[in-house]
Design a protein around this nucleic acid. Sequence first.
DNA 1: ATGGTCGCGGAGCGA
Length: 255
Amino acid sequence: MRIVTWNVNSLRARMPRVLEFLERQSPDVVCLQETKVVDELFPRDEIEGLGYSIAFHGQKTYNGVAILSKAPIEDVVMGIPGKDHHPEARVIAAKVEDVMLLDLYVVNGREVGCDKYEYKLKWMADVAEYVKESFPMTEKVVVTGDFNVTFDDRDVYDPAKWEGKILCSQPERDALAKIMEPGLGDALRKHTDEPGIYTWWDFRTRGFKRGNGLRIDHFLLSPPALDACSSVEVDLEARDGEKPSDHAPVICTID
DNA sequence: ATGGTCGCGGAGCGA
């Protein structure tokens, strides 16, 4: 099973690129973030036309997550159960075949120390509880999405410049570790220790052309899923060209 | 370069 995570930064604006990607890569499952579309306006016809079922959890203007799958999508859960004080559409879970999926659009946090940053840490703590309570590590569990957090210097193009900054601060990294504490592993690092593998490049600084990126989109796998994981790849072609998202899709293969 | 560019929605916010 080839599973993709992709922050598309508006699905409707990204449709030409999304359709191109689906036809070129033909993944089995796609976890989307920042769809920025209410469910009534979700552009489902063209996606279904390529053979995908869809589960979506959208809202107006901001956020929004969705799962596309060639196989039936079962047991869909939207939001963080019991945490209704988080009004944004940032979480959708589902089961596809024998894989339990959790698709996350983690709060960005804007700047270390601001109110949005504090909210990010609280939100991630709630996700950690949800993972611990609802995703048994004896199953094939895939927690993926835009985490808006790097693991370490290898994920950062200029670690000195970014040290302690948003997406790189220790409290954020600790919150990410807490989500993984029940037994999730970073799938990319099963396969390589290389630095410089990035998934997001800032529009404003023309980061992609400069090679100035960060790795903030991850696949966190339970032991059975990690054992079955044969590759993790970033599709740089989808980040290049006309009207790309600021994130590249990441493809994780589970045999 | 303490800026810059996107997307949404139709000004300013979020990223």
